[in-house]
């Protein structure tokens, strides 16, 4: 088994499993903290095989999006695969928790589930007086038609 740099692949894997872009994930500032969290809490062999196998899958020129999705579903998502690393990683990004434990104040505040539902973590990132009376800004913006010259 070749040693592999998991830190580079962690961002890639996180984007694949969460459905958020690498930029969105980096913007949370949680990348390093979450990488450390999985290293600390997951069996080393599971981590190594997870990233080797994932890297192989994603760099395999014979695979297309459909077959990749199929393999991710059947080989990576099951609770029995790689110590449930994929499931745990998604929950970590979405909720800021590892199991029932909150990693940190920052992880709670940066939970992706709040962005997903066009809200914010209760007690943080407060959107301001009266904002709740209107459609969320992220919903309003997505319904504004982009101009023909817009990027």
């Amino acid at each position: 088994m070749e040693p592999i740099s998991t830190s580079k692949l962690f961002l890639e894997a996180s984007a694949v499993f969460t459905g958020f872009s690498k930029t969105e994930l980096k913007a949370t500032g949680m990348l390093q903290s979450y990488h450390n969290t999985i290293l600390k809490n997951t069996n080393k062999e599971d981590i190594d095989y997870f990233f080797i196998d994932l890297n192989q899958l994603l760099t395999d020129p014979k695979q297309d999006a459909k077959s990749i999705k199929h393999i991710l579903t059947t080989q990576f998502m099951p609770i029995s695969a790689y110590g449930s690393l994929a499931q745990n990683m998604i929950i970590l990004w979405y909720t800021g928790n590892w199991g029932n434990d909150v990693i940190s104040s920052a992880s709670y505040i940066q939970g992706l589930m709040w962005d997903t539902i066009h809200a914010h973590p209760p007690g943080a990132k407060q959107p301001g007086y009266g904002s709740w009376s209107d459609l969320p800004l992220s919903v309003k913006q997505s319904t504004v038609k982009s101009s023909p010259n817009g990027k």
């Binding site: 694949v16 499993f17 969460t18 459905g19 999705k69 991710l72 579903t73 998502m77 099951p78 609770i79 994929a86 499931q87 998604i90 929950i91 979405y94 909720t95 928790n97 589930m113 709040w114 997903t116 539902i117």
Partner: peptide, 17 residues
């Protein structure tokens, strides 16, 4: 919404879906 996430993930749903 935490429980919605854990339920969906336990059903094997991930990514954009």
């Amino acid at each position: 919404p935490g429980s919605d996430v854990t339920t969906a993930v336990s059903e094997g749903i991930f990514g954009k879906e």
